[in-house]
């Protein structure tokens, strides 16, 4: 790539595409025409994040106690902020005590040990991978126009299939 290479013209401004990729993982690729890539990335990242929540419970998203981990988790989008707000709402009266016989069930159960570690890891890796996705979609918006790269992979595949038939 040289300084004089013009970027590929995209119908949407790059900051908007990057913001869309943060709000909904994979949406940035969909907006620039990479539909299949965007769907694969989005479904995978949301599955990882929701999988982490299923494994470790809402306790794995905690902005106040796990600030550094949350910094990575927040990269998945507003979903992490919403989950943190839910966690904060449950914690309004302090973290729940371990369940005991005769006591009402706590709002949620604090996760510990490997389950907490893996749940936190799932959610954080989903966020950090979404940062890569955002950088990738920015790169695809601003890469130099080349004949072979000017089409999305879906369009190239369709052209190849048409040529075969």
């Amino acid at each position: 790539m040289t300084q004089s290479d013009p970027p590929i013209p995209t119908p949407m401004p790059v900051p908007l595409v990057a913001a869309a990729a943060w709000v909904v993982p994979g949406l940035g690729h969909v907006l620039i025409g990479e539909h299949r890539r965007g769907v694969i990335v989005g479904v995978t990242l949301l599955s990882l994040f929701i999988g982490g929540l299923l494994v470790g419970g809402v306790d794995v998203i905690d902005r106040r106690q796990d600030t550094l981990w949350f910094a990575g988790q927040a990269l998945i989008g507003p979903l992490a902020l919403v989950v943190d707000q839910v966690h904060s709402y449950f914690d309004a009266d302090g973290s729940p005590a371990p369940p005991q016989a005769g006591q009402p069930m706590p709002a949620y159960e604090v996760s510990v040990g490997r389950v907490n570690e893996l749940g936190t890891l799932y959610c954080t890796l989903a966020g950090v991978l979404n940062l890569l996705v955002i950088l990738d979609v920015i790169g695809r918006c601003t890469q130099p126009a080349e004949p072979a790269e000017s089409q999305s992979s879906d369009e190239r595949l369709a052209a190849q299939e048409n040529a075969r038939s």
Binding site: L53, L54, V58, Y108, S111, R114, V115, G119
Partner: peptide, 8 residues
């Protein structure tokens, strides 16, 4: 989403 899985 409220309780962790017992996967210890």
């Amino acid at each position: 989403f409220l309780d962790p899985l017992d996967f210890h």
